[in-house]
Structures are given as C-alpha cells and as structure tokens.
C-alpha cells in the first residue's frame, strides 16, 4: 500500500477518465493515469511506458532499468507478492460479485 510497484502500460481503456491497462509481472489491471499525463495531453504516448503504481494509480514514470531494480527489492521484501496478490484477488472479487 505504501510502496509503489512498477508496471508497464499496455493500452488505454478510457481516454476521458484517463484509465489504462497496466501489466505488473503478468497481472493486468486498469489503473488511473492522471498523475503521469504527458503535457500535450496525448495519453496514447504512455503506451509502452513504465510507471510506479500506488493502489491503482500510476504516480511516476520510470525507465525500464529502474522498474527492474525496484521490482527486485520489492520481491526481496515480499511486498511485490503481497501487492500482486491483492491486485489479483480484487480483480477476481469484482468479476465474481458483479
């Protein structure tokens, strides 16, 4: 919850609401991209970029190397596993309960 987890933006799902899909170690979910919007407003430019994600919000753009290094530390601390599991469970619960 307190540490951001790195992921790669793979598509834009709702340009108006500034939402896109992000891939975090193979788990994909929708995140809010408002805090990392390019200055020219072209949200599509974010596709392929890496970002630190806090509780479903991309908070900072990072490069791929930084993403890898951050993920390594989070895995070591066990925080990445917790975060990814929370993502997965939340997704499943939403699908199940409707």
């Amino acid at each position: 919850m307190c540490l951001g987890i790195p992921g790669q933006i793979i598509s834009i799902s709702d340009a108006t609401k500034k939402l896109g899909m992000i891939d975090v170690s193979g788990v994909q979910r929708e995140v809010n991209l408002a805090c990392i919007m390019p200055e020219d407003g072209n949200i599509d430019a974010l596709i392929g970029e890496w970002a630190l994600v806090h509780v479903g919000f991309a908070m900072s753009r990072i490069d791929e190397e930084e993403a890898a290094k951050t993920m390594e530390v989070l895995l070591m601390l066990g925080e990445a596993q917790e975060e990814i599991e929370a993502m997965r469970r939340s997704q499943l619960a939403m699908e199940k309960n409707g």
Binding site: E30, V55, A93
Partner: peptide, 13 residues
C-alpha cells in the same frame, strides 16, 4: 467488509 486493491474498485462497487 471487502478488501480491495484500489479505491477505484470501491468506486466501481
């Protein structure tokens, strides 16, 4: 009580 990963999920609920 439901645990969610993100407040976005609460909004969707």
């Amino acid at each position: 009580i439901r645990t969610v990963y993100s407040p976005l999920d609460a909004l969707e609920l």
